[in-house]
């Protein structure tokens, strides 16, 4: 399974779902395929799941997708017990596990290349719907379920290392611009101010 293929299939199906991505190639690939104000490309390791949880709590009527990587999630494993206990029914987490720190340019193996099973860790933390998938058809099934059904979903997608993102021209939209686009989109669609204060 290739992450880019998953994103290419999923991006056109997104409507008003909110998406939070971590760092790594997925930020570049999703940003290349999806051009929605509802995308929050965080650009940091170890934060996407927590930020996604915060969004899901704040906006329980909105579906939130989080795209994590193995390296990023390994940096923030303490998120998993919190995720399980909060159990936000409007949150779907997809961990694209290529078993590498691809961003290092030397593809240093992560712990999941060894004995570590992130889906089992999440299960042990108390996340009921925690699954590990390896096939594109399974991804389509899980993603369709996430789009159409309620309930916390944690899906570890074992993918091949792909360097598609290195061939994509990087966006010049910086983090603050991304944040403002996202917040203004929420203000429009939620019909309420988010950032207080006027000049």
């Amino acid at each position: 399974m290739i992450r880019y293929d998953c994103f290419e299939w999923l991006a056109p199906q997104m409507k008003d779902e909110l998406v939070v991505t971590s760092l790594s190639g997925q930020r570049v690939e999703w940003g290349h395929l999806s051009h929605r104000d509802a995308d929050l490309t965080l650009g940091s390791m170890g934060n996407a799941l927590a930020v996604g949880m915060g969004l899901a709590i704040a906006l329980p009527h909105r579906k939130v997708f989080v795209f994590e990587s193995d390296g990023s999630l390994l940096l923030s494993l303490f998120n998993l017990p919190t995720l399980a206990n909060l159990n936000p029914p409007n949150l779907a987490v997809f961990v694209f596990d290529n078993q590498k720190y691809s961003g290092t340019r030397i593809s240093w193996p992560t712990a999941t290349a060894g004995k570590t099973d992130l889906a089992a860790i999440a299960k042990g933390a108390g996340v009921e719907h925690s699954v590990l998938i390896r096939e594109f058809e399974e991804f389509k099934r899980e993603a369709t379920g996430a789009l159409k059904e309620s309930g916390l979903r944690f899906v570890v997608c074992k993918i091949e290392e792909s360097l598609v993102h290195r061939k994509i021209v990087r966006s010049n939209v910086d983090l603050l611009e991304t944040k403002y686009k996202f917040v203004r989109y929420l203000e429009r669609t939620e019909g309420k101010p988010i950032f207080a204060g006027r000049g």
């Binding site: 929050l40 930020v51 915060g54 709590i57 704040a58 929420l186 988010i194």
Partner: peptide, 12 residues
């Protein structure tokens, strides 16, 4: 980080 996400979603 959870507080940050919730703040972007409109919570104080």
């Amino acid at each position: 980080s959870i507080a940050a996400g919730a703040a972007l979603g409109g919570k104080v």
